[in-house]
Amino acid sequence: MKKGILFAFVALLSTGLFAQTTWTVDKAHSQVSFGITHMGIAEVTGLFRSFDASINTTNGLDNATYNVTIDVNSVDTGVERRDNHLRSDDFFAVEKHPELTFKSKSVKKDGENRYKVTGDLSLHGITKPVTLDVWHRGTITKDDGTQVAGFQITGEVSRQEFNIGPDFPEAALSDDVRIKVDAEFKK
């Protein structure tokens, strides 16, 4: 009897382990962008050129974990002078705080192929919980057998909560920074 219980436990454990899947970001088909309102009248957008991300799943996306690391020094708004200012101590202070990370803590289904993902965002030496909207746009199998999943992740963060640009009032730069990630992940 004890052998049967032990065998069943080992079989259940190994089934769970084999059901776990890691999806890695396809950087050539992905981008991390942001937007902020300047002077209350214009949208300024930019990208982070260097990043890494993974999604770990066990039997679907309802309990997935999301991990993202961004090299803040890779900020690119298309204007070198502005990018250098964003890297300075006035904003990101990249020499002291070179990375932005997001590690999910919970996932809540929010409609068909849509999820609310809550996790810890660490930026500028500060870690705070944020909730992002995740849209699983679909999964395909390529001719070579590789499975690819597409995601769009959106949300807003308060720059003031992360002490980004504290000397710049909302009349100059909005507090809300919009985040948009369009990404493909390979299994």
Rank of each mutant, 00 (worst) to 15 (best):
K3G: 05
G4S: 08
F9M: 12
L12A: 12
T15V: 15
G16D: 09
T22F: 04
D26L: 05
V32F: 15
G35H: 04
I36A: 14
T37E: 09
E43F: 10
V44P: 11
T45C: 04
L47G: 00
L47S: 09
F48Y: 05
R49E: 11
S50N: 09
S54Q: 14
T58P: 09
L61W: 12
L61V: 00
D62H: 08
A64W: 01
T65W: 05
Y66A: 00
F91A: 07
A93T: 02
V94S: 12
V94Q: 02
P98L: 01
V107Q: 03
V107Y: 02
Y115W: 12
T118I: 04
D120G: 05
L121M: 15
S122K: 14
I126Y: 10
P129L: 01
H136K: 06
H136A: 10
R137Q: 15
D143K: 15
D144I: 03
G145P: 01
T146L: 11
A149H: 08
F151Y: 14
Q152D: 12
I153M: 00
S158R: 05
R159F: 01
Q160R: 15
N163S: 11
G165W: 01
G165S: 08
D167A: 12
D175M: 02
D176H: 06
V177T: 00
R178Q: 11
I179C: 08
K180H: 15
K186P: 07
